[in-house]
């Protein structure tokens, strides 16, 4: 199920996006795990600060991404949320 458009996603407590100077790559660090996000995921994760709505993030990325990729963004948010890395509270 895709997140509601008015949800304001933010990284969960203990999860942060960082840049690894050794691998020259962005990394998502969380309790006991590391993810290497692709460029789309990096662009999305950077905007997940608890103030931007899903709709606003999609709008913001519309310049750089095609419609099909915007569907992927919703899916990405859902997946990250299912893994406990993202909170999707809509209040």
């Amino acid at each position: 199920m895709n997140p509601p458009a008015d949800a304001r996603p933010r990284l969960s407590r203990g999860t942060r996006l960082s840049f690894d100077r050794v691998r020259h790559a962005h990394v998502l660090l969380y309790p006991e795990g590391v993810l290497f996000p692709n460029q789309t995921a990096i662009d999305v994760l950077r905007r997940c600060d608890g103030s931007n709505t899903v709709a606003a993030i999609a709008d913001d990325l519309r310049h750089d991404y095609r419609a099909v990729e915007l569907t992927d963004i919703a899916e990405l948010l859902t997946q990250l949320s299912a893994r406990g890395l993202l909170e999707l509270d809509s209040n």
């Binding site: 960082s18 690894d20 990394v27 660090l29 006991e32 795990g33």
Partner: peptide, 8 residues
Amino acid sequence: ARELGVLQ
């Protein structure tokens, strides 16, 4: 360790 690539 960090220089080697350790993140966690």
